[in-house]
Design a protein around this nucleic acid. Structure first.
Lengths: 364, 364
DNA sequence: CTGTTAGCGCATTCAT
DNA sequence: ATGAATGCGCTAACAG
């Protein structure tokens, strides 16, 4: 071990800087903390001493006495998902611009992880938290409510939670889904598959039951389902439970389910995917069945990407304003931390359907 | 504002719990902190009081007096890159399993951001840091060296830094690149393009200069270049500067450069991409030129993905053990935090070439 | 086994 | 304008 004989302390404190500068601690604290009055001369000496010792303020100690940490906590469902990675960048860009650090935790869609994450953030005394919650029912939000009750500002991003009256920054999921399905319908399709992911073991047979199920689901999924149904209704196309997938939207499950829909006697001719892995899963199923898009089945999916654009043919996809979503969430949170009264409302951003070449009329 | 009349403090402290339980602070601290001896009865009372008040330890105060935070700092070049997102998951999974939280910062390949990130982490008193550094030369590592000097354990991940003698967890970049290029050569190719990204304005004309340039570059890029050259050498194929791209590997630049290589009189027949955006960029160029893979040009790229598998034809790609990379880095770091003497060595993990259908013999 | 006491590093009155 | 004294919530000797 070199370099730790008797040089200078690895982490000089403010007292050591004060001693080195030959002033009182308070004076050193004032200049280093940037508050209160300090004469130019003293100031110079303190700065020089601090520089010489390589002083860095201990953020913990500082938060300890001020009560604020200038840190935002962020809880995302899956940081490995490019969608959330983009949202994160929006959050981190705007919070950094306003002098805040961010600490990110990924729950991987596990509620227990989310609860643990909230606790970690509260324990670390973050000034506020942004969360894309995996909670669905009123019975799963106790941890968020607890945070709010403890006085921690919380804003929801991507997924609103019905039973929580908080600011939420989301996109127009229902409209986006409707537009996509309408596009399919306009191309002449009537047998339109829907890759959805209710945890239920089987698809409810009736619309009514399905809608009920939707409310017990992730908000985004519920909205997208409603949009799908809206489009069907407007075109007077009856809802067919066989055309909606059930179970978690893993690529494998999607492949299976799409294969099933493809094998239906009255085969589907178009497919709408609510997630990016759903698209790759569907593509696998198509290939396995020896089918090609858009000829055999038209395709539209959520979440645009570089890949979608270079596929052959290129995929028509819904592009979400990921960066803006994160930036807006951070702005709202930062504002309420700054003292603004929370408006507790839904901030809805617009998505965009990027037309490319995965939609064609049914082969007939 | 409901719920804050005169109920209980939003954030009860250990003293309040002690008071509520009618015991001394130390006793409360001992049971809540899980150390020292406490009789079962006292213990019960404290626990009950804590539960009643909804007590949660203040992690800041705790770190303050113990000097440890049970938190790992992670600095990644770009959390939006699925590669790093995967690495992050490896890190977070294993550190959580060992009782550590992680705080992630993304530098987006900016050295100043990286320096700021190191400072943030040190200020927050993390117990160790994992970094995928964008630093290339000895002149750009002062911040990392400073951290080490302050006694903070540091382990490098993905990118080793020549001038830093630290533990580094990486993959066999040179071998991986060589194997890929060898595969191309074995298929009969001799005009093999290489999407590389030296910041230099133009490609050095000679091998010697190129290699020199490599050392002034990101370590991974240097290694991959060496692998490319290794394969060429073994097959006695002369190096042609026209076949290597220069400049940052953004999708746009790649598209331009690949188009250039495609327009060469003695056209390239195969392409090796060292990055995932390079692949999409190349694909765009191919389409624009009205060319198809693998017929007109064979293709191999770094970083496998779900998309690569569903492309038509599916892409032959190098798969990196992303999760393992992160897990191993966390293990090494946690071990040295735990007191193990750092071995300061390179931990090399094996990548894997996933053969699919983007390589075929040259059209001739 | 339990309670008292003294810091951790900083911000912040309060006198001077 | 500056310095001495307190407190943030917790851990850790230390005594009882």
């Amino acid at each position: 071990m070199p370099s730790d004989r008797d040089e200078m302390p690895a982490r000089p404190t403010i007292s050591e800087v004060a001693a080195e500068a030959g002033v009182g601690r308070a004076t050193a604290a004032r200049t280093l903390g940037g508050y209160g009055y300090v004469s130019p001369e003293m100031r110079e000496r303190v700065l020089a001493a601090a520089d010489k010792l390589g002083y860095r303020a201990n953020a913990l100690a500082r938060s300890m006495s001020t009560g604020v940490s200038h840190t935002l906590g962020v809880i995302l469902a899956d940081i490995g998902n490019p969608f959330f990675a983009g949202v994160m960048r929006g959050i981190s860009d705007t919070s950094r611009a306003r002098g805040f650090d961010t600490i990110v935790l990924s729950t991987y869609e596990d509620l227990d992880e989310e609860i643990a994450a909230v606790n970690v953030l509260i324990d670390k005394r973050v000034d506020g938290v942004i969360v894309a919650s995996t909670a669905v029912g009123p019975g799963e939000v106790a941890h968020i409510r607890a945070a709010v009750d403890r006085g921690v500002p919380v804003v929801l991003v991507d997924r609103a939670v019905a039973s929580l009256d908080l600011d939420a920054v989301v996109i127009d999921n229902r409209d986006a889904a409707r537009e996509a399905v309408e596009t399919l319908i306009a191309a002449g399709h009537r047998r339109i598959g829907f890759v959805w992911g209710p945890p239920a073991a089987q698809v409810p047979a009736t619309r009514r039951e399905l809608l009920a199920e939707a409310s017990r689901n992730l908000w985004t999924d519920g909205e997208r389902l409603r949009g799908y149904l809206d489009a069907l209704d407007d075109a007077r196309i009856p809802f067919d439970p066989d055309l909606v997938m059930v179970g978690r939207k893993t690529e494998e499950r999607v492949t299976q389910e799409v294969a099933r829909m493809l094998a239906l006697p009255d085969r589907m001719t178009a497919l709408f995917c609510t997630e990016t892995e759903a698209v790759t899963g569907a593509l696998r199923a198509l290939r396995a069945a020896g089918l090609a898009y858009p000829h055999d089945v038209a395709l539209i999916g959520f979440d645009d990407s570089a890949w979608a654009a270079v596929m052959d043919p290129p995929l028509t996809m819904i592009e979400q304003p990921v960066h803006r979503l994160g930036a807006k969430a951070a702005e709202v949170l930062l504002d309420t931390i700054g003292g603004a009264e929370p408006r507790r409302e839904m901030h809805t951003l617009r998505s965009r359907l990027v037309m490319r070449s995965s939609v064609a009329p049914p082969a007939s």
